[in-house]
Nucleic acid binder design. Structure first.
Lengths: 342, 342
DNA sequence: TGCAAGGACACAAACGATTGCGGTCACTGT
DNA sequence: ACAGTGACCGCAATCGTTTGTGTCCTTGCA
């Protein structure tokens, strides 16, 4: 089954390929008589013509491809974002190319190069580190790009994410409200914006409630994983501080906290309350169901895509959005309760 | 920053673009003197040349793109497969285009058309239904394609999956071994190969143990979701059959079973044991941790990609693999135990 | 009737790579 | 010395579109 090409359509309609092209393209259709364009459309329909995107891209220097770079698609944080982005992109006639860097900078560089070779019209990047030379290069190269989930120190690229500060504040407010005074924080890695932002927000929230300065009350996990969360929690438990609630840098870290509490025989929420961050799928099913801050992941992906499209197709005269934060909410579940009444 | 093209490299190396092309391509490099190819390689390196995939694809009718079609990337079944596939594809210089059909046939058709317009060299499809006209068309069109996770009645396309029959048998054997005699099955939708295959395997396993014919012991969920699993479980509980163990069509259905058991005050595993299928991430964290059949999802994705590549680049003289089944294992966790001693 | 204006279309040149074909040149064997 | 043989490389066509520049013909107006 030979692919039918523009020439075939043109021949069938009795016109020149150039004319057929104009007739098919809505924005140039008015350069062609109604009658002719009708014939061309009909012929295209009848022959089942579908334009060759490669040829078009070669000529127009537009690929209608956008690349999305995630560190690990297996991490439940990303599928909803990917999905949100994919839906708006494919709705706009774009194709999403997904690449999984496996958390490896070299792989990431290779992937991005691949994407540029493909002539990707834009990039959505979810792997930003606080200091990220690759992203600075991308920013310098002028390729339309938007960051999701994390941003960089240099802030040279637009960013779409959740309102993390508010999320942390809501969580801390809740803990304080039900009676907690001794709250510790198991932070995420500080080479990511989320790690820094949430840590800062935690310190600020604690201070605003007049609670003791949390210098010793923070332990940093070196990755957003259960294992790293567990390690950081052990460190915390091995110091002398005592506490009745722990705020985790994200849900996966919370998982680590939970497992360490379990192995030390500390009951949650009876003895220690726990709050996570992200509200990943399935975290309502674990035991105890995790109280956590819900981020609208799908919406973040979708908005990132829309922001990117605006930048790609942008007329340029309107001011570009540099940062968008979406609202978050606290989801109350079984992992938080009043502190033990000693 | 203008993209450097082949012409630039050629000029820098003082040769014709055609020669440069040959020098750059490993398979044609021997048509060029060592000295010349060295100069060309060096120039390419120095200028940071990265070939324009669109132009190459246009000329060679090869896009080095393969499309992967999944019903819902948010379903934890798929990310590991996607990841497995992506790793072998990008290792082979291919790019993975991911499309999420949102479980909608019309969307799927549109997406596949998009992919073919892009000149995708092949397709990996995870959305197969038992009767699937779109897939028959694809098979007829000759586009290299491999099915993962599910296959079609017509079996016209190669398939890579797990050894489901064995998985079910292992699970039933285990239940019988710890003393269960009254085992029911909450099946997945019967318009998928997995739904049918697993149901058949269940019947066969039960028969082989000399247990009563399971005609009334099977309830069919109309989707692989928690809600559908819950509905099917209620139907089962509202009949008069009693049972001490339930085998679920997959983990998500098992989730539905669990929630209905909870709402009826039936304790798992003390009163009823439960076995799932797939061993999705996080199902070791729920309460009780789910005993389930582990499918090597990443490996399935990877093997699908390799099978596809063989078909794409295939010399054609070797016999094509039509079906590959990967080994599965039973993961024992807290949701199964001996039946109550009445 | 003549002329300008402009609508509708055809022509052909791009886009950036690959590749069949053929030409040049050095070298070999007789 | 000359034909033959390869190795090496340049030339130009080609992939399927889009789009700038012509050309023709119709139309309107004086």
């Amino acid at each position: 089954m030979e692919r039918v090409k523009l020439t075939d359509v043109a021949r069938a309609a009795g016109v020149h390929p150039g004319t057929a092209s104009r007739a098919l393209n809505p924005t140039t259709r008015d350069q062609v008589s109604r009658e002719t364009s009708r014939r061309v459309l009909l012929a295209a329909q009848r022959l089942g013509y579908v334009p060759n995107t490669l040829a078009r891209g070669l000529r127009t220097a537009r690929s209608y491809v956008v690349g999305m770079v995630v560190p690990d698609i297996t991490n439940p944080l990303f599928p909803p974002m990917v999905r949100g982005a994919e839906q708006v992109l494919s709705g706009a006639g774009y194709t999403l190319v997904l690449t999984d860097t496996d958390n490896d900078a070299a792989t990431e560089r290779r992937q991005v190069e691949q994407l540029r070779a493909r002539g990707a019209d834009g990039l959505i990047i979810a792997t930003a580190r606080w200091e990220d030379p690759l992203l600075d290069e991308i920013a310098a190269s002028g390729t339309p790009t938007v960051l999701v989930n994390r941003y960089t120190a240099s802030r040279r690229l637009p960013y779409v994410g959740g309102d993390e500060r508010t999320g942390i504040r809501l969580a801390v407010d809740h803990l304080v409200e039900i009676g907690h005074r001794k709250i510790v924080y198991v932070a995420g890695p500080q080479d990511t914006s989320t790690g820094r932002e949430r840590s800062a927000a935690f310190r600020q929230a604690v201070r605003s409630h007049g609670l003791p300065s949390p210098a010793r009350l923070v332990s940093v996990a070196n990755a957003y994983t259960e294992a790293a969360g567990a390690a950081a929690t052990r460190k915390l438990l091995d110091t002398t501080v005592d506490f009745t609630a722990v705020m985790a840098g994200n849900d996966l870290i919370a998982l680590g906290v939970l497992s360490v509490l379990g192995e030390r025989g500390i009951r949650c929420p009876e003895q220690v309350s726990l709050v996570g961050f992200n509200d990943l799928p399935m975290f309502d099913k674990i035991s105890p169901p995790l109280t956590t801050v819900r981020l609208p992941l799908g919406a973040i992906g979708g908005l990132a895509a829309r922001t990117l499209l605006a930048e790609i197709e942008g007329t340029g005269d309107e001011d570009a959005v540099v940062q968008s934060l979406l609202g978050v909410e606290l989801t109350l579940r079984g992992s938080t309760g009043p502190p033990p009444s000693d």
